[in-house]
């Protein structure tokens, strides 16, 4: 194969990695935020699906991708409100609430999608087109991979450093981390533990929802039942692997996207082998990575517990 052919196939491959990583990165950043505040957000899977459904509905009803984005964010925020209300407000087990929300969103979106989209479910929805950034996009290899993307991918580039800066360089970030590790201390200095937790959970769900919006508005342009297909769970694995640090979590997401892109290529090159052998790869990679590297992880100390003032 010629050198030029190699480069273009590399560009293809890394563009695929980036496309596959975007929804996982959004969701994983959401996971970091919620877990840093001491709340497991197991409903990320549902948030991605809900965001995708909202995006499809908005784009279908309003006819613009921006309308889709707004609907997707609103739907995900609504999911966040339910999670915050049940897990933070009523103090029901966070894992249980998250699983319950996933099941609800799966059923609700399947039903509502058939009602609203109906026969048009398979027709292509309006979406965002790639925007090439002048100059930067003409850098060989890096340019076409990184700087010829759609707006949501650029938003993802911003979201990673922003969330790092927010968590480690701002007083609000300090509050969030304090609430996740030692809520009594935060409460003592007058930070509202349930308030901050609720905000973090809702933002977390919106981030997950953005991942779903990306799927519909930038990638496939249709809504299908259960289209999140486990991405939320991979994002949660990335949160643990990345040690609840946005930068490392981003690296973990890229690793998962890489394994997914690899399996797609393997599928394509080996049509005679049943494809399921390859579609197992990302999950197997997450599993192996968790077992091999999770080792002595130290999650936020107060995670999973309801904060009760004056409680133990």
């Amino acid at each position: 194969m010629s050198w030029a052919g190699d480069v273009s196939s590399l560009v293809d491959f890394f563009s695929t990695v980036l496309r596959l990583s975007t929804p996982i990165v959004f969701a994983a950043l959401g996971g970091v935020l919620a877990e840093r505040a001491g709340v497991f957000n197991v409903s990320l899977e549902g948030c991605i699906l809900g965001g995708a459904f909202g995006a499809a509905t908005g784009a279908y009803l309003l006819g613009t991708p921006v309308g889709g984005l707004v609907f997707g964010i609103l739907f995900a925020a609504a999911i966040g409100c339910v999670l915050a209300g049940l897990a933070v407000g009523l103090g029901i087990n966070q894992l249980v609430t998250g699983i319950a929300i996933n099941i609800l969103v799966l059923g609700l979106t399947s039903y509502l999608a058939r009602l609203i989209l109906g026969a048009d479910a398979t027709s292509t929805l309006p979406g965002f087109a790639p925007v090439a950034i002048p100059l930067l996009s003409s850098i060989p290899l890096i340019g076409p991979v990184l700087f010829n993307q759609d707006p949501l991918a650029y938003l993802m580039y911003l979201a990673v450093p922003l969330s790092y800066w927010f968590l480690y360089r701002t007083p609000w970030g300090l509050n969030v981390r304090a609430i996740g590790d030692y809520p009594v201390a935060a409460d003592t200095v007058g930070v509202s533990v349930p308030g901050v937790r609720a905000i973090c959970v809702i933002t977390s769900c919106v981030l997950g929802g953005l991942g779903g919006c990306y799927l519909v508005l930038c990638q496939v342009f249709v809504f299908t039942e259960n289209m999140s297909a486990g991405k939320g769970w991979i994002a949660l694995a990335a949160v643990i692997l990345g040690r609840w640090n946005p930068a490392l979590v981003f690296v973990a997401c890229i690793f998962f996207a890489f394994s997914e892109a690899l399996q797609l290529r393997l599928q394509f090159n080996n049509p005679d082998v049943p494809y399921q052998l390859f579609s197992m790869v990302p999950f197997l990679a997450s599993f192996v990575a968790l077992v091999a590297f999770a080792g002595r992880v130290r999650p936020p100390a107060a995670i999973g517990t309801k904060y009760v003032r004056g409680g133990k």
Partner: peptide, 13 residues
Amino acid sequence: EAIQGLVIIFVAA
């Protein structure tokens, strides 16, 4: 499926 989701949410609540 939607009703089933509602059942589990209400039971959890």
